[in-house]
Amino acid sequence: MSTPKATDLGGRALDFVMGIVEAPINGFERLMGRKRMPYLFLAPNLILFGIFTFLPIAIAVGYAFTGGTGLFVSERPFVGFDNFRQLLQCEDYFRPGSCRESLFWTAVWNTLWFVGFNVTATLLVALVTALILNRAMAARGFFRAMFFYPVLLSPVVIGLIWKWFLDRNGLLNAFLQMLGVPPEIFLLEVGWSRFFVVVVSVWFHMGFYTLILLAGLQAIPKDLYEAAAIDAASPRRTLLRITLPLLGPNLLVVLILLMIRSVQIFDEAWVLTNGGGPGTANSFIVQYIYQMAFGSDLRLFGLASAASVLMGLVLLALTLIQLRLGRKMES
């Protein structure tokens, strides 16, 4: 019987290690008393949050008001609102070319268009899928799992899989050729590449939102539907008077969450479009920040931080709306 012995040995080794870990912690307890123990248990977490989350937030705002190429605040001259002025100086905001920082405004407009299309498409697809799955379908678990699978994949993997699917020699072109349509290099054409960035984003994330909406649908009391059936209400009436109003708060939360995440589009689009191409057709705000700060040797940390602060304000506004909605839902 070697297996029980092995686990026994592992258990004893763990006990030994824990004995060593335990000694100073128990010492602290004897010295400071039981009442102070929660502070000790919280310490590792709070120290890490302090250094890697709260400190960066504190620096972020200050950073946006400095210039130069130095890394540390002490090496950077204070420039006031120069970075913001550079970002916001524009003759006509609808024509990025007329702006001092035309790349930024190209990214802003690209992001706005993306958010509009992506939020609409994802919400529609997720809602329809959730409504279908909410009917007592056979194999519901299988389909729910199937739609959810892409959510777990890495954005790099998704970018590459789709890049290959849309390749000149890829499956989509092979299919089109069967139908007699000439092949197209989708990712080198402005319109198609933008279209497929949205398609890939919907493909990637819709399973997540379907899951949230489905949970909301299943929380609607069944007797409401039974009552509607007794009254012989039409399906349209049932949907408009029962399902959608009761799903409403869920839909709003999903909508805001989708907006918050869509504004931050970067990873999969970066891989799929070879860094925002063709040209700057798919260059988004996060990509602009990344490129200003890390993409070249220029290291324009001040400008990148100023752009981060502007995006952060938009996200903060969306988050506050979400919190308010969440509180309304609870009450």
Partner: peptide, 12 residues
């Protein structure tokens, strides 16, 4: 989100 604090987080 990381995207907002990535520059100062890198500095840290």
């Amino acid at each position: 989100p990381l995207t907002v604090v990535m520059v100062p987080a890198y500095l840290v």
